[in-house]
Amino acid sequence: MSSDVRTRAARPEDLSRFIVERLNAGDVEGLVALYEPGAVLALPNGQVATGRAEIRQAYEHLVADKPTFAPGQQQPTLQNGDLALTSVRLADGGVTVEVARRQPDGTWLWAIDQPSLLG
């Protein structure tokens, strides 16, 4: 499926729903499409994936074993103009924190993603 036919995030909160759907589908390209070209993604080993190529590699590794992901509880979004801080409380007690940016077409993409702040 090419990224131009995937649903794009009309609201910052949509990104959290899309990530779970695409993780469970093993849709690596769909996952990468949720990020700005120069976005950063924190990795479990303390490293950071920078840019879509590194983010793609991280997700290829993550979905290889076909894990199942459950949606967490979306927390209230804090928005200031074209920036939004989103977070999700996970079932395991962890919390995700992301910074999304409104794109020129009005949709939202993540610029910074910290998927495991606590836990």
Results as ranks from 00 to 15, higher is better:
residue 60 E to S: 13
residue 99 V to W: 14
residue 86 T to W: 09
residue 101 R to N: 06
residue 85 L to Q: 10
residue 69 F to D: 11
residue 77 T to D: 12
residue 78 L to H: 07
residue 86 T to Y: 12
residue 60 E to K: 11
residue 78 L to D: 03
residue 87 S to Y: 07
residue 71 P to T: 02
residue 73 Q to H: 01
residue 63 V to G: 04
residue 81 G to L: 12
residue 57 Q to S: 08
residue 59 Y to Q: 11
residue 67 P to H: 00
residue 93 G to I: 03
residue 81 G to I: 13
residue 75 Q to N: 01
residue 89 R to H: 12
residue 69 F to A: 12
residue 100 A to V: 09
residue 83 L to R: 09
residue 59 Y to I: 10
residue 91 A to Q: 12
residue 57 Q to T: 04
residue 80 N to P: 03
residue 62 L to E: 03
residue 82 D to H: 15
residue 97 V to I: 07
residue 68 T to A: 00
residue 88 V to P: 12
residue 79 Q to L: 05
residue 87 S to C: 04
residue 90 L to F: 15
residue 64 A to Q: 10
residue 65 D to R: 05
residue 71 P to E: 05
residue 102 R to A: 08
residue 80 N to Y: 12
residue 75 Q to A: 00
residue 74 Q to G: 00
residue 92 D to Q: 04
residue 86 T to L: 15
residue 79 Q to C: 03
residue 99 V to S: 10
residue 72 G to T: 01
residue 98 E to V: 09
residue 81 G to S: 13
residue 55 I to F: 06
residue 82 D to R: 15
residue 77 T to M: 11
residue 79 Q to W: 03
residue 92 D to Y: 00
residue 61 H to V: 11
residue 102 R to P: 06
residue 102 R to Y: 08
residue 75 Q to D: 01
residue 68 T to C: 01
residue 74 Q to P: 01
residue 58 A to G: 07
residue 96 T to K: 13
residue 73 Q to W: 00
residue 69 F to S: 13
residue 60 E to N: 09
residue 83 L to S: 07
residue 93 G to H: 08
residue 71 P to G: 03
residue 91 A to F: 03
residue 102 R to H: 08
residue 59 Y to M: 12
residue 89 R to P: 11
residue 100 A to E: 06
residue 67 P to F: 01
residue 88 V to M: 14
residue 98 E to S: 10
residue 73 Q to C: 00
residue 56 R to W: 06
residue 95 V to M: 06
residue 88 V to T: 15
